[in-house]
């Protein structure tokens, strides 16, 4: 059997490229970010107590909850994993294309690999959709009315500010430029089912997206992004995010970067797991909050 959520949390890296990239971005977000990878510390944080017996009880309950298939905690993680794998595969291809582009003999290969902005837009929309699906898997549909649900979603987004900032910077502002959000809808409009199938994450997520067929899925992705854009626009304005600021923030932890923003985005796609890393932490927190209430 695969690992429980808290085991996944324990196995997260303490210090590597992913952690440094998130640390860099978190300097743009008030409140900052701490790389919390110890279940005991997380439980102590939620319970406001460091009694080892209580922590043990919460941990046992959390493991029981995450082993139950209908509870959706692990399904949320598998969504994050699917998106992460796809991002790495696509990023790796683009790195290869960049390298190959410099070698005269294999230049033709480089022109074949997809690196277009539409694909980047599809990738972002899949991430947004995965985020919403994972939210319903982890939290259900909280509250009795749509207003309650929207409040809950906003609350979650507020809690995951660093995660959202990483998504906005790495997947929108760096690869697509500062006008990314305004261009996104137009870019998604050009996407056909061929491009959709070129993104590896789509194959993994297709069965989880509502509706049947590529057209319905594209419609869902566009609506999801539309909803998200309204929120992300405010978020960018509030924090004053831009490609330049993101690069400077990243340089603070990763070291100087001489290439363009697009290359930086490709590099981050290929070599970091920011999306899955913060995803595991977010799911683990919600799981522990429930387990603490049920023991």
């Amino acid at each position: 059997m695969s690992a429980t959520v808290l085991e996944r949390l324990e196995r997260l890296p303490r210090r590597n490229l992913t952690v440094l990239a998130i640390k860099g971005i978190s300097t743009l977000v008030p409140g900052g970010w701490r790389n919390l990878t110890s279940p005991a510390e997380l439980i102590g944080d939620v319970m406001g107590s460091d009694d080892p017996e209580l922590i043990q009880q919460v941990r046992a309950r959390a493991d029981e909850l995450s082993r139950a298939r209908h509870e959706g905690y692990r399904r949320a993680l598998s969504l994050y994993d699917a998106v992460n794998r796809s991002q790495k595969a696509a990023g790796g291809l683009r790195v290869l294309a960049n390298v190959a582009g410099a070698l005269p003999l294999v230049k033709r290969v480089a022109s074949l690999s997809p690196a277009s902005e539409t694909l980047q837009a599809v990738d972002l929309s899949l991430k947004v959709a995965a985020e919403m699906l994972a939210f319903t898997q982890v939290n259900g549909l909280p509250g009795d009315s749509f207003a309650d649900f929207a409040a809950s979603l906003n609350d979650y987004a507020g809690e995951a500010r660093v995660r959202m900032a990483a998504m906005v910077c790495f997947d929108a502002l760096l690869p697509l430029g500062d006008q990314a959000l305004h261009r996104l809808d137009g870019l998604l409009g050009q996407v056909g089912s061929r491009q959709l199938h070129q993104v590896p994450a789509y194959a993994g997520m297709a069965s989880l997206l509502p509706g049947r067929g590529d057209a319905a899925h594209l419609g869902f992705l566009r609506r999801g992004v539309d909803h998200w854009l309204g929120w992300a626009d405010g978020f960018i304005g509030e924090l004053g995010l831009s490609g330049q600021r993101a690069v400077r923030a990243l340089e603070g932890t990763l070291g100087p970067w001489q290439g363009g923003m697009e290359q930086l985005a490709t590099f981050l796609d290929a070599f970091t797991d920011t999306y899955a890393h913060t995803g595991v932490q977010a799911v683990a927190r919600r799981l522990v909050e429930r387990a603490a209430a049920e023991i």
Binding site: N139, L141, P142, G143, D155, R286, E289, R290, A293
Partner: peptide, 18 residues
Amino acid sequence: VFTQEKRGFSQARLKRGE
């Protein structure tokens, strides 16, 4: 703010401001 709702469980946060 309601945060989780599953079978047999419902949770909310009591917030003052942020």
